[in-house]
């Protein structure tokens, strides 16, 4: 995937001094990127910090961007790498305890009979918590695939891993998530 003509023009404009062009270049991605970072980091404030750093680096380093990958991939690579660094630095402060206080106690797997919609909501809540329990390598591919909607090649470009590794990690990550959700899957099955 290479940089689009529109983005090439915007990048040229930025390097030529157009400040508007930076906004136009970033705008299609910034909100989505923030959401992705928030899910990877499990912390909106941390996502703010990382997005800020990522935009800054993208701005400062734009003259090193050579168009070998799409600008989207380049920007996300910067941001995800910064998110990994952030997590390693700040891990003690981004604990599941924080998440529990934010999202309530982890739901118990032994549920009363509830209607399908509330069960689905509960599944999503458990899924949210389970994503936070994934290791970094699985969480990144799962978030990029399921939340950001990236294809395997793009994920590989962002994380600098092969598409085969992406496929493997996505599947293993999903299996780990599935383990957490199995009790709820059973409740939602027609047999119950």
């Amino acid at each position: 995937m290479t940089v689009s003509q529109d983005e090439q023009d915007l990048i040229r404009s930025i390097l030529a001094g157009s400040s508007d062009a930076f906004e136009r270049l970033i705008s299609p991605y910034s909100d989505r990127l923030f959401n992705t970072l928030a899910h990877i980091l499990r912390n909106a404030e941390a996502a703010e910090d990382v997005l800020q750093d990522a935009l800054l680096q993208a701005f400062v380093k734009l003259n090193t961007y050579q168009g070998k990958s799409s600008f989207y991939t380049w920007l996300y690579r910067i941001a995800v790498n910064l998110a990994f660094s952030y997590r390693r630095r700040e891990r003690p402060t981004i604990s599941m305890d924080n998440q529990k206080s934010e999202h309530g106690e982890e739901p118990q797997s032994t549920l009363e009979a509830v209607d399908a919609e509330s069960l689905r909501v509960e599944r999503a809540e458990i899924l949210h918590i389970a994503i936070g329990e994934l290791t970094e390598e699985f969480r990144a591919v799962i978030v990029l695939r399921e939340i950001e909607g990236c294809d395997y090649e793009t994920i590989g470009d962002i994380l600098a891993i092969s598409p085969g590794t992406v496929r493997s990690r996505i599947h293993r990550g999903r299996l780990q998530l599935r383990e957490k959700l199995i009790p709820l899957f059973k409740q939602n099955s027609p047999a119950t």
Binding site: S19, F22, F34, A44, L55, L56, A124, I147, L181
Partner: peptide
């Protein structure tokens, strides 16, 4: 499908701040 129910995080006024960053 459940991923579609996860919270979506928005940074308010992000365009405004990106614009400020550039200007």
């Amino acid at each position: 499908e459940d991923f579609g129910l996860l919270p979506v995080y928005h940074a308010l006024d992000i365009q405004h701040f990106v614009r400020k960053a550039a200007n």
